[in-house]
Amino acid sequence: MGTLVTGYVVLTAYLVEPDGPWDQQAVTNSKVAGAIGLVFSALMALLTMAFVRAGWLRKWWHAIPAALAITALLRLTLLAAEL
């Protein structure tokens, strides 16, 4: 469930695009969604680590929070929304 929420927040960060050079709020919203997605990815990584250590999940489950974190980080840096 947490992965779906994190994926939704990161997707929202990518869907927000400014309408023009005056739309500073869209840029801010994209940055906020990217930052929240990065925080949620870190929390999901910690939960995944706990579940893998408990033996409930396999090691490949670490790839999901890592992919979401990389995606959110790319949105905040290289693929950031600009005016």
Rank of each mutant, 00 (worst) to 15 (best):
Y14E: 12
V52P: 00
V9Q: 03
T3L: 12
S41I: 02
K59Y: 06
N29I: 08
R58T: 11
G34Q: 01
G37H: 02
L76A: 00
A13S: 13
A81M: 04
V10N: 01
G7H: 03
W60D: 15
V16A: 02
L4E: 13
W60K: 14
K59E: 09
V32D: 10
G55L: 03
E17H: 08
F40T: 04
W60E: 15
A13M: 04
T3N: 07
A81P: 04
L74Y: 06
L76K: 01
Q24G: 09
M44G: 10
Q24T: 14
A80P: 05
V39C: 07
M49Q: 11
I64A: 08
L38D: 03
P21C: 09
L83D: 12
V5G: 06
L43C: 10
V52A: 00
F51H: 13
L83M: 10
A26V: 03
V27N: 04
L43F: 13
A26W: 02
V16F: 04
V10T: 02
R53K: 10
T71K: 07
V9F: 00
H62Y: 11
W22T: 14
D23V: 07
L43Y: 12
A26H: 07
T28F: 05
V10I: 03
W56A: 15
A42E: 14
V10E: 00
F40K: 10
A67F: 08
L76T: 00
A80L: 10
E82V: 15
V52N: 00
A63N: 10
G37N: 01
R75D: 01
T28P: 05
G55S: 07
F51C: 13
A66L: 13
W60C: 09
A80M: 05
E17G: 06
N29C: 13
R53V: 08
L11M: 11
P21W: 13
Q24S: 11
R75M: 05
A80C: 09
M49G: 14
L79E: 10
W56K: 15
V32N: 10
A26K: 04
E82L: 10
S30P: 02
K59M: 08
R53I: 12
A67C: 08
